[in-house]
């Protein structure tokens, strides 16, 4: 075969098949934003160092800036535009909205996609770097604030919305009662997190 630096790929994006020509250099991120008009996925660093471009690829969260579009041929992509159920927001989206889990909003689609996957990873029993005992016999650690923080650390938020993000993920994961979440006082925090 002669070298070819471009080609056509077919992706299933948010349940819909798209065939599009791409330069081999095109990342999935740029294909979404510049070819398909799906600009909900954000470009923050273009180097895998911020998480703003997080999408779900075959159901798993990935950074789309380091995923070549041509190498995603045939795979299923879910972007922020595809996580709601019609007009009904995904519980993670709703929790981010209600609890003000963002400020400028630029990292938000990536945070939300990441959170959706993080909740599923936890439900599947995946340990994290802060899981004290990773042996399978130890069981799944509860999704504490510390676990959420670690699991969401691949998504930088320069506005510093982390506190509300953790609360939103906790609420969406059903680990906290739904409804308005009051910021607990220091004593309650200390108790909840086993500090002090």
């Amino acid at each position: 075969m002669p070298p070819s630096t471009a080609g056509a790929i077919t992706l299933t994006i948010n349940g819909e098949k798209h065939t599009l020509p791409v330069d081999n250099r095109t990342t999935l991120l740029d294909a979404l934003r510049e070819r398909l008009g799906l600009t909900g996925t954000k470009k923050g660093c273009d180097q895998g160092q911020c998480g703003a471009c997080t999408v779900l690829l075959d159901g798993r969260r990935v950074v789309s800036c380091l995923q070549l579009a041509v190498a995603a041929e045939g795979r299923e992509v879910t972007t922020i535009e595809g996580v709601a159920d019609g007009d009904r927001l995904h519980p993670v989206q709703q929790a981010f909205l209600d609890l003000d889990g963002f400020q400028c909003g630029y990292c938000t689609p990536g945070q939300i996609c990441s959170a959706i996957a993080a909740i599923e990873e936890h439900a599947a029993g995946w340990p994290s770097a802060v899981t004290t005992d990773v042996r399978p016999e130890a069981g799944v650690p509860p999704l504490t604030a510390e676990e959420i923080r670690e699991r969401m650390s691949g998504n930088l938020c320069r506005c510093g919305a982390y506190v509300s993000i953790v609360q939103a993920v906790a609420r969406a994961a059903g680990e906290r009662p739904a409804g308005p979440v009051e910021l607990p006082g220091a004593a309650a925090v200390a108790q909840a997190e086993g500090v002090a």
């Binding site: 895998g48 998480g51 990935v62 380091l66 993080a118 650390s153």
Partner: peptide
């Protein structure tokens, strides 16, 4: 688990 992020570990 101590390396990178959830997204990068998936890739």
């Amino acid at each position: 688990l101590a390396g990178a992020s959830g997204q990068l570990r998936n890739m």
